[in-house]
Design a protein around this nucleic acid. Structure first.
Length: 250
DNA sequence: ATGTCACAGTCCCTGTGA
């Protein structure tokens, strides 16, 4: 089973890139973030032509998450079942695996209300995942670097979001439920990034962060044969600022 | 650290979010 997570930064703007990538790479399950569209605009029929069932949780201008699957798609859940006003979480069961597409709040700044929302949101996700009863994958844009190895310039990020101790503790709480950051487990020392700012030629200068993560429970992690970022998807015409992150499970 | 991109509004520019 091949599973990919990709923050596409508008599925409207990225539709051609996304369908080309899916056609070329034949993933079984696709977790999308930042579709930035309503459910009515989601291209269900287009993905069906490629052989994928899909489920979308959108709100319009911002956020929006989706699951695509060619191995079945059942028991869709949207959000946490509380009053979260933003469309940032969708779950489904695909081929016997419970998958979640997660778009963690950015946080904006350590003293911003959005940062407190980010920490609450991550705690709610950890609580949800701790209750899992099936093989589970939680993938998405977590907007947190797990360690300094995942940041191109840790000194420049002191005092910023994406690197702070509370954010990293929130990821550690997810891992403490028995979930594994599979890309890092399979590449313990390697510099790997999944996002590069559009500004300043960041991609070509190697100024990236690894914030797009795939958390697998141990039963799946033990069977994972590969996990990698497709940096080629960050090149060319109209790329997302995020690249797809893949895991292959035997 | 900001040289970009995407969106909405009421549009051929500005504010917002990332």
């Amino acid at each position: 089973m091949k599973v990919v997570t990709w923050n596409v930064n508008s599925l409207t703007a990225r539709y051609a890139r996304v369908t080309e990538w899916i056609t070329a790479n034949a993933p079984d399950v696709v977790l999308l973030q930042e579709t930035k569209m309503t459910d009515a605009k989601f291209p269900t029929a287009g993905f069906a032509e490629l052989g994928y069932e899909s489920a979308h949780y959108g709100q319009g201008q911002w956020n929006g998450v989706a699951v695509l699957s060619r191995v079945g798609l059942e028991d869709v859940s949207r959000g946490f079942g509380d009053e979260d006003p933003e469309a940032r979480l969708i779950g489904a069961t695909c081929g016997g695996v419970r998958v979640y597409s997660c778009y963690v709040p950015n946080g904006r700044a350590l003293d911003n209300d959005h940062y407190a929302y980010k920490l609450r949101w991550l705690a709610a996700l950890a609580a949800l995942l701790a209750e899992r009863t099936q093989p589970t994958i939680a993938g998405g844009d977590f907007n947190v670097t797990p360690t300094d190895l995942d940041c191109y310039d840790p000194a420049a990020f002191v005092g910023a979001t994406h690197v702070s101790a509370p954010e990293r503790a929130a990821l550690a709480a997810i891992e403490a439920t028995g979930l594994v950051d599979i890309t890092r487990r399979l590449h313990p020392e390697e510099t790997i990034y999944s996002w590069w700012d559009y500004r300043n030629g960041a991609f070509h200068r190697g100024w990236g962060l690894r914030i797009d993560l795939l958390y697998l429970d141990e039963s799946l992690a033990a069977r994972a044969s590969a996990s990698y970022v497709d940096r080629n998807a960050r090149k060319g015409e109209k790329p997302s600022d995020h690249a797809p992150v893949v895991v292959e499970i035997d």
